[in-house]
């Protein structure tokens, strides 16, 4: 194994709800090894220095979506952010725009509710039975929604979203992108129902197209694009229903 000779300092924003003070920054000196990620530094702290530090992680390969945090002010996956890319100072803080439970652990309850609200499942008049076999879906039809199915629910986009910062009722980037993913799926017939949910209350029309969500997405999903297209789809659907009413 490689020997660690250098050390680096990291600064972590703490929140200990049972402590006085609850909020403070804490510095830790961490042994540095090449190819170290921010998550490795946090694990070093927890294992060696301070077991009270709380943060979520699991897969350490950028796919489970647990380990989002602000790293030097930018929402990132700590397991996919090499320390070498950060320069000298490293500050780790919880994701913006969420209630904090403890340290870097934030409350996902609001998103989990929104996720269910947009009906992220195939909606059809009549479901096929297994004996009828698969729905055929051409590679081009798959490609249409493919990027929007890559969301890992890491919440970086919500942390970056200025609209969500101002209004927690805003449906937000990831939930909208997932709704759009199902609307684009050739097997689905539920687009109108989802558009209803996505436009009511603080829905997609509240998005001011800042586009930060797409910038911070670690999986190259483009929620900003999804939201703009949903707005068009919604406008077209209303137009169609007006025309329909006029005809009849």
């Amino acid at each position: 194994m490689q020997k660690a000779t250098e050390t680096i300092n990291i600064r972590v924003k703490r929140y200990l709800p049972e402590n006085e003070p609850r909020n403070f920054y804490q510095k830790y000196e961490v042994k540095y090894f090449p190819k170290m990620f921010v998550l490795d530094a946090l694990n070093y702290v927890r294992d060696r220095l301070d077991g009270t530090l709380a943060y979520r992680w699991s897969c350490r390969m950028g796919v489970c979506g647990s380990c989002g945090a602000l790293v030097n002010g930018i929402p990132r996956l700590t397991c996919a952010t090499p320390l070498s890319a950060l320069g000298k100072g490293v500050t780790i803080e919880p994701l913006h725009n969420f209630p904090i439970i403890k340290d870097l652990v934030v409350d996902l309850g609001d998103f989990m509710e929104k996720l269910g609200r947009i009906k992220p499942w195939i909606i059809r008049e009549r479901d096929r039975v297994i004996e009828e076999g698969e729905y055929e879906q051409k590679p081009a039809e798959l490609e249409l929604y493919s990027q929007f199915s890559a969301c890992i629910n890491c919440m970086l986009c919500y942390a970056a979203c200025p609209v969500y910062a101002g209004d927690v009722d805003f449906i937000g980037p990831a939930a909208s992108a997932l709704g759009y993913r199902y609307n684009l799926d050739s097997r689905d017939e539920g687009a109108e129902k989802r558009l209803e949910v996505l436009t009511e209350g603080a829905g997609i029309f509240d998005c001011t197209f800042v586009g930060e969500c797409s910038v911070v997405c670690p999986k190259s999903v483009d929620p900003a694009l999804a939201i703009q297209r949903l707005k068009i789809d919604s406008a077209l659907t209303s137009l169609k229903s007006i025309l329909k009413r006029e005809k009849s």
């Binding site: 195939i122 698969e134 590679p139 798959l142």
Partner: peptide
């Protein structure tokens, strides 16, 4: 097939089959 009906984005052959 059940997962396909539930929306799993399985990769496809050119003819649309799994």
């Amino acid at each position: 097939i059940q997962l396909e009906h539930w929306g799993c984005p399985w990769s496809r052959e050119p003819d649309g089959k799994l």
